[in-house]
């Protein structure tokens, strides 16, 4: 599978350089919102690569190579994980540089925000990829936007009616559950993507 990941890295090398620059710049801004944005943006890189693959009809060739569907689909998830991991790592490194100069400090809140941001990035990846494998990048993006808007509208309505959320004083159980829930959603997404890939 390393051949597939290497191909993806070569394909997005230009985008990677831009992303690195983007992450470094926003890393120095030290703003939680921008940190979230940078890491979530990294989770979209596999979609960019899928777009290039689609244009080259790479899958026609890839299907003929000695790879299993698990590897062909899984490589995009690994690429997503690598991108998100690298973006988060760079953010932390920059934050650490700031601590050396005394301009910032690692507060517990920082790690919570980082953890939840990484989980959010993986959730985006999990929702995105099955759509992309199913109907292609162009239509998949459209469907993804519709899906996210629908989910957000539903969530906002639901939260208005869930009194216990409003009275919740501590978010710690939610924080603990987030990585486990993300892992489960990633697994489900991977299985859906495999089905979508086989039927695309």
């Amino acid at each position: 599978m390393t051949g597939l990941i290497l191909k993806d890295i070569y394909t997005m090398l230009k985008q990677t350089k831009l992303l690195l620059l983007f992450i470094v710049v926003i890393g120095f801004l030290q703003d939680d919102f921008i940190l979230t944005y940078g890491i979530c943006y990294a989770s979209m890189l596999p979609i960019t690569v899928l777009g290039y693959d689609e244009r080259a009809k790479w899958n026609k060739l890839a299907d003929m190579l000695p790879y299993t569907t698990n590897e062909l689909v899984g490589s995009k998830y690994i690429l997503g994980a690598l991108s998100v991991g690298a973006a988060a790592f760079i953010m932390v490194c920059i934050k650490w540089l700031h601590t050396l100069t005394g301009k910032a400090a690692f507060s517990p809140n920082y790690w919570v925000v980082l953890l939840l941001t990484v989980c959010t990035a993986f959730l985006l990846l999990s929702v995105n990829l099955p759509f992309m494998f199913w109907i292609g990048v162009e239509r998949g993006r459209l469907l993804f936007v519709i899906f996210v808007v629908a989910v957000l509208m539903f969530a906002v309505t639901a939260l208005d009616h869930l009194e216990f959320i409003k009275t919740q004083t501590s978010l710690s159980p939610l924080i603990l559950a987030a990585p486990a829930a993300t892992a489960i959603i990633l697994l489900i997404s991977f299985q859906l993507s495999k089905i979508a890939y086989k039927h695309s």
């Binding site: 390393t2 051949g3 597939l4 290497l6 191909k7 070569y10 394909t11 090398l13 230009k14 290039y52 693959d53 244009r55 080259a56 009809k57 790479w58 026609k60 060739l61 003929m64 190579l65 000695p66 790879y67």
Partner: peptide, 23 residues
């Protein structure tokens, strides 16, 4: 196949590195 289907940004050296890890 009837076309080569390599992503357009790759060059022969890239193809070598990819296929080295494929076959």
């Amino acid at each position: 196949l009837d076309e080569a289907y390599f992503p357009e940004v790759l060059h022969a050296k890239n193809v070598n590195q990819i296929m080295k890890r494929t076959y």
